[in-house]
Design a protein around this nucleic acid. Structure first.
Lengths: 219, 219
DNA sequence: CGTGTTATTGACCAACATCAAACTTAGTGG
DNA sequence: CCACTAAGTTTGATGTTGGTCAATAACACG
């Protein structure tokens, strides 16, 4: 992958990297920081459909999509690399097993989507928040980006709301509950999990669907 | 695809074809009828994450998944075929462009997921129902399984609720609203769309994300 | 016809949204 | 180092969407 022609870019927090509806000719690779994908609705709502951390290829799907049905933005400041589609496609046709790895990665993402959808559709606010924290902790851990009981999660409460289908006010109250129960603390973007088993119980979290993610990570 | 060793099976409505957590060794192909994928939550809830119609490969992802994080069930009576994983994988490695087609199909599914998640997270009950009807009508149309203004959608209101994150009672009231406004009618599993433009407007539906689905369909 | 499933209705309730204000925090420039 | 500012968080009061429960009606099927 090192031989690819890439163009890197530093981004501030909250920058719209790739707008909804555009037809990108490059793939975006996250080097540092948090990014997200989100869909804008007619009534001005916003649904974050994925969080992306270093090593992710947020718009891997754009290789196949005529035009993006969602936007890609930065959550925190960070750095991304852009790689021309042709270069990626050339690489993939040269190495079929890499293409399979890409497909496999897409399959894992689909599993993340299913869990996310299940949270938003059928879990309470508290369960959703707990589930998301468990998921992101597990993913960060797999990358060696988490410490034993805490990790950096630089999202605002409004962004959490947009991810979980809740208002920022309700996110705030839900977080306070979790803190009051002593399950987590969350100060200055650092989430500390005091009792992971309990948090998983609250959030109905089973890491099974992320197994392959860990395996697929050696990007 | 015709040379694959397949085993067909007729199913009643509401049969659990492949249970959550299993490790299937075959892919399931829908020949006739409606199937769905759903996730069960700890508190007894159910989230339908996808509807599948003839021509779909509901557990295409199981080719890569160590164990299924969701179940596959029949919505209506129908017929499915089972194809051993090895046979599919052999075919895919023999024909790399077929593997790309599978990947592409997974990408389209991801787009469907994103819209679904956006509906459940950020749209009102009425918008969700309208959006889903538009989506399924568009998909059925692409397969030649819809008539000019109506199609067969053999789901119960409880199933609709499980798909859209709502209760069956609320689905019922929402449908009555749409019927009262004259946008649709729904009798005996047949949905008739009287004003598609209006329905799309209500549901914030843009068929763009399904374009590729239509193209990929020549299974 | 009877039986089980699905649809419909009404009464009531809970979770979460909205609005608006006050308070913190982090970052900035003098 | 201290105001100043803008963004984010927290709080309270109130409103609304949609859930729950329970009963009845309508079907579909044998």
């Amino acid at each position: 992958m090192a031989e690819l022609p890439l163009r890197t870019r530093s981004v501030e927090a909250g920058v719209d990297l790739i707008p909804q509806g555009s037809t990108p000719s490059e793939c975006c690779f996250v080097i540092e920081g948090w990014m997200c994908r989100h869909v804008l609705t007619a009534n001005g709502g916003r649904q974050i459909v994925a969080f992306h951390i270093p090593g992710d290829l947020p718009d891997r799907d754009s290789l196949h999509l005529p035009h993006l049905d969602h936007a890609i933005s930065s959550i925190s400041a960070g750095r991304v690399a852009f790689i021309p589609h042709e270069a990626v496609l050339a690489l993939l046709s040269a190495r079929p097993n890499l293409a399979v790895a890409f497909w496999r990665d897409a399959v894992v993402d689909a599993g993340v989507f299913r869990q996310w959808l299940t949270s938003v559709g059928r879990r309470t606010a508290k369960q959703r928040v707990a589930h998301l924290i468990c998921e992101m902790f597990t993913r960060m851990e797999a990358l060696g980006l988490a410490d034993s009981d805490h990790f950096s999660f630089p999202v605002t409460q409004a962004q959490l709301g947009d991810a979980l289908g809740l208002s920022s006010v309700h996110i705030n109250r839900t977080l306070q509950e979790l803190k009051a129960e002593g399950v987590i603390s969350w100060r200055a973007s650092i989430v500390t999990i005091h009792d992971e088993a309990q948090l998983r119980g609250i959030g109905d979290f089973d890491p099974g669907y992320l197994e392959l993610k860990a395996m697929a990570q050696p990007h």
